[in-house]
Amino acid sequence: MERTIAGKTIAVNEEGYMTDFSQWDEKVGEALAAEANLTLTPRHWEVLKYLQTEHKNQVALSIRRVGKSGVVDIKEFYALFPNAPLKTATKVAGIPKPASCI
């Protein structure tokens, strides 16, 4: 599937997650955040960059791992990305939805 985000044609899956990270840029991230009713602050960006790095290193993401990252604790993660933080943050970051139960 394809859709237009921030004026660019972007490949996404049926849940709206980007399927080609090379198409992601900060404008796209901001547009995706706005769709999730989020305004990105420098703290959000730190978390998003961390998630992208982990994804690049092929680390399986989970709430537990994010909490242990030293970048953000679980409580703040929920505060920054209310309602389903891992799902929302990965979507905004342009990386796949983690298949994690923890």
């Binding site: 989970s62 709430i63 537990r64 791992r65 909490g67 604790d73 679980i74 409580k75 929920y78 923890i102």
Partner: peptide, 17 residues
Amino acid sequence: IDMPDVPEFLEILTASG
């Protein structure tokens, strides 16, 4: 499989609301 022990899991639950 990255499953926390009970004390850590309780901390995660509390932090998660």
